[in-house]
Computed example of a mutant assay.
Amino acid sequence: MISEFVAQFAKLIATYPDDIRVQIKESDEITEIVLYANQADVGKLIGKEGKMIGAIKTVISGCKAKDGVSYRINVEPI
């Protein structure tokens, strides 16, 4: 569910939406969401002063409150 949200949100912003991939890496303490995007879209996804990625983190933090899992999100170029 979270990976689908992150992917759809990123595709709306990205110039190259077909390059968007989301990978979930789970461990005992934290679930890491890795958002892979075209190099040209990395800056757009992070946003000015981190506002775009901050918006994604805000929504994800709501999921943390619901299920008690800590999430971390990273944007990586392809």
Rank of each mutant, 00 (worst) to 15 (best):
A14I: 07
I46N: 11
F9S: 14
N38D: 15
P17N: 09
E26K: 15
V69R: 00
G62S: 08
I2H: 02
P17T: 12
K64M: 13
A14P: 02
D18M: 10
T58W: 05
L45F: 02
K64W: 05
K64T: 13
A40M: 11
F9K: 01
Q39H: 02
D41S: 07
C63R: 00
G50K: 08
P77K: 05
T15H: 13
Y36Q: 09
V22K: 02
Y16D: 15
D28F: 01
V34Q: 04
E32I: 10
K48E: 06
Y36P: 04
C63E: 06
V69I: 14
V34I: 12
G68W: 06
Y36L: 13
A55K: 08
K44R: 13
I53R: 09
D19T: 15
A14R: 07
V22P: 02
K66E: 12
Q8T: 15
G43K: 02
G68C: 08
K51T: 15
K11R: 12
E4Y: 08
V34L: 09
D41M: 03
K25R: 14
M52S: 15
R21F: 07
A7F: 07
Y71V: 08
D41Q: 05
G50V: 13
C63P: 03
K25Y: 12
E76A: 11
G68F: 02
D18L: 11
G68R: 09
K64D: 08
G54F: 11
T31N: 14
V22M: 07
R21P: 06
V6A: 03
I56F: 03
A65H: 10
K57T: 09
I78R: 05
K51W: 15
P77Q: 09
N74W: 01
T58F: 05
S70P: 01
K64R: 11
V69W: 02
V69Y: 00
